[in-house]
Design a protein around this nucleic acid. Structure first.
Lengths: 229, 229
DNA sequence: CTCCCAAATATGTTCATACTTATTACCATA
DNA sequence: TATGGTAATAAGTATGAACATATTTGGGAG
């Protein structure tokens, strides 16, 4: 970060944007000009501007040049760790308790997430505990044909959450966050009042054309997902 | 993306990780060796590995080399647009309705977020509408000393959300997502039943040592925050 | 045997240069 | 006046070489 590091260039660019020396919507100087002005190589300016663009503050297009974003869409990065790691990193004891495990016909809403109509689905539910307290209720469906060893794995020893992350390479996924209220059975599992507000994450991961697994996590009341920008 | 682009190198690295040619926890070849093997410059390998590391799949340390992450902490990127833009990009008509606006003494929980004890805080609440339907209830506090023109801006013409993004440069912020249930007044504003589950985002943004604004957004039932990984 | 310092080393960064590619602007043609 | 092709341009990428920096390793001093 001494004189002409890319971080220094980025800092200077951010300063000019914040100071309105480069107002929103206006084009900024070309990479080559900036390199000349700041006394560094164009590659260094490129690296810096690329980072700024990734944060959403400037927009870049070939030939057209770079301009300060008019409506900056801020990008926040969420860390999505394995639940056991998340709990243990807070210094709490982790435990998992399997509730149900059955190979069964899924409701249409679940079925729709698995494009393969022949998929044999395993349904697993369980509770993640932190220091003995309920932390999250996991409700998961796994495509047993797409995921080897699904039917022979003992989920009382390892949570499906962790087992899948360790043993099944995936290519991508969708995540959605929402809110719901605890049903009677959910309230009992999470030891909270019926109707309590619960934070929900729904995640579906796939490899190639095949959906591997789809999971709903209900977090105990008070859970907050936190990040910075 | 032809032969030896950094994207091609990244694809090959991802393939080897997924195929378990490079198992979790194991070190991977050095940049120089990979460059030689794949027939490209070390800088190209560096670029590719840096991207893979940013996604959380490998861990890199100087002198120690790179290794496949044992517990990959997946990184998901959230887009946080101005609410008006979010709604209009879905093709819906946006409107904002100011509910209250007063300079008043904040409760201690809010006060704690503004480090400056002398801060004069403006409290603004309003409703964001999509196609006439309630979308989100905004409850915001603004430090009038840190943010110029706070007291003279007409928030019936522009929402504080958008005004702040456009006119106040900030350096960073905290965001937390959680769930709550609608109180009586919240239910009335959002035209939903009392006790309905609401998705909440709490955001505090700052510049230097000064907290600029702190906002709580209550989204109408059914709202989902969506991303991919 | 333990502790600390120095050498070795892998990643991190900068640079000049050259080439690639998307996009715009301009001009000629219909 | 439209339209389509083409040249100009700015970002994107690749490369080899050099230097910077964080860690580890190993050896020497105590």
């Amino acid at each position: 970060m001494t004189a002409n590091s890319w971080q220094a260039v980025r800092a200077e660019v951010l300063r000019r944007i914040r100071a309105r020396e480069w107002p929103p919507g206006e084009p900024i100087p070309h990479e080559a000009d900036l390199a000349l002005e700041l006394g560094c190589a164009r590659a260094t300016v490129n690296r810096a501007l690329r980072e700024v663009a990734e944060s959403g503050l400037i927009e870049r297009r070939r030939r057209a040049g770079s301009r300060v974003a008019l409506h900056p869409v801020r990008k926040a990065t969420l860390d999505i760790p394995v639940i056991r790691v998340e709990i243990e990193s807070r210094g709490e004891a982790y435990d998992f308790s399997l509730i149900t495990r059955e190979e069964t016909t899924p409701p249409p809403s679940i079925r729709a997430r698995f494009k393969a109509p022949d998929a044999r689905l395993l349904h697993v539910t369980g509770l993640h505990l932190a220091d003995g307290q309920p932390h999250a209720l996991e409700d998961r469906w796994i495509d047993a044909q797409a995921v080897p060893d699904t039917l022979t794995t003992d989920f009382t020893r390892i949570s499906p959450n962790e087992w899948l992350v360790l043993s099944v390479p995936f290519e991508g996924g969708d995540i959605a966050f929402s809110a719901t209220t605890a049903s009677a059975t959910e309230a009992q599992a999470l030891t909270c009042p019926e109707g309590a507000p619960l934070f929900v994450t729904d995640r579906t991961t796939w490899r190639g054309e095949r959906t591997l697994t789809s999971v709903r996590l209900l977090f105990a009341p008070g859970y907050r997902l936190h990040t910075r920008l």
